[in-house]
């Protein structure tokens, strides 16, 4: 009772990283507050998954039902509403992911629970929950206070918690699925895989990546030239794909590809967290941006502040000379 609850996110038989990140955060808060940490696992035939989570929480609550085979926010909401009534958790963590964004707001509204979304940190002092979230594309941190309530909810930004090893030796509690009739108002039909593109940017040794700052599709060949002079592959951030200036298979980030090249050159990319999550593992990151406060400079090793339309041609000239 009054536990810290973490909703396990999994897809096609795999537990997603956000789950371990939330458990890590939950464990820290559990130690501080003395409230037990519980992992909440909903699915079909996921007993093995529950075994794997035992060490990471004081308890794993397992609810299995064929209707929980694939994620469906309405079915999840029905089950979770029930669990919250029974368990009366103090705080429920859900990932700020495609899964959580479809589920958390409606669940919170149903349970009259205060909800802080897309949080990078959560603090609890004397049962007062506060969260840190970012606004204005990562340019500002906002500290939010959740008004006291029987149950509060927070969605956690992926990759905002670093995970360490720990062991809690928890136990598994099976709870019978409360689902009776079919829910037909929202139906999961199938997954659609991304079509394979002409290049695989995940295999590139050097990526020259272009973002919104390029302003005009006519400027893309200039960046392409720079990439060519380095023997690099051209990639991009989301806005360039949204505008159909480059195909989707070139996109780096959460909804595109995760890359780890030796060198990553970010040109006109401000550094939304979805992009950073997809490239922060790169060996050396060089960023070119007009705005010295762009979040990309927080992950870049080297930065150039200025007009990319001037810098890119100058750079291309020198590189062609040096690596001719």
């Amino acid at each position: 009772m009054a536990d810290i609850l973490v909703l396990v996110e999994h897809r096609r038989g795999e537990i997603r990283d956000i789950t371990f990140e939330m458990l890590m955060k939950g464990k820290t808060l559990s130690e501080k507050t003395g409230k037990p940490l519980t992992a909440l696992l909903l699915g079909n035939d996921v007993g093995e998954m529950a075994e794997g989570l035992k060490d990471l929480a004081n308890r794993v609550v397992l609810i299995e039902d064929p209707k929980l085979e694939n994620f469906n926010s309405e079915i999840y909401q029905r089950v979770l509403g029930n669990v919250i009534e029974q368990e009366k958790p103090f705080l429920l963590f859900i990932g700020h992911t495609a899964f959580g964004m479809d589920l958390a707001p409606t669940l919170a509204t149903q349970m009259k629970a205060p909800l802080a979304t897309d949080c990078t940190d959560v603090m609890v002092d004397d049962d007062q929950i506060r969260a840190i979230r970012q606004t204005y594309g990562g340019k500002l941190n906002v500290e939010v206070r959740l008004k006291p309530a029987p149950c509060s909810m927070v969605t956690v930004r992926p990759a905002s918690v670093s995970v360490e090893d720990y062991s809690l030796a928890g136990e598994i509690t099976r709870v019978t699925s409360p689902l009776t009739e079919e829910i037909a108002s929202k139906r999961f039909l199938e997954y659609v895989e991304a079509a394979a593109g002409e290049v695989d940017i995940t295999q590139a040794n050097i990526l020259v990546s272009v973002g919104r700052g390029i302003k005009d599709p006519e400027n893309i060949p200039m960046v392409q030239e720079l990439a060519k002079s380095l023997g690099a592959t051209l990639s991009c951030s989301r806005p360039v794909v949204d505008k159909k200036w480059l195909p989707k298979d070139r996109q780096v980030g959460t909804s595109g590809k995760t890359v780890k090249p030796t060198v990553y050159i970010a040109i006109g990319i401000s550094g939304a967290f979805q992009h950073i999550a997809g490239m922060k593992g790169s060996g050396t990151i060089i960023a070119i941006n007009r705005d010295p406060k762009a979040p990309i400079f927080n992950v870049a090793h080297y930065g150039i502040v200025g007009d990319l339309l001037k810098i890119v041609p100058a750079l291309k000239g020198k590189i062609s000379e040096a690596f001719a």
Binding site: N70, A98, S185, L189, E190, Y191, T254, S255
Partner: peptide, 14 residues
Amino acid sequence: RELEGGLEEILDLE
């Protein structure tokens, strides 16, 4: 619905 890593899911809604 756009999921992560280029994956999508198709839903049928009332």
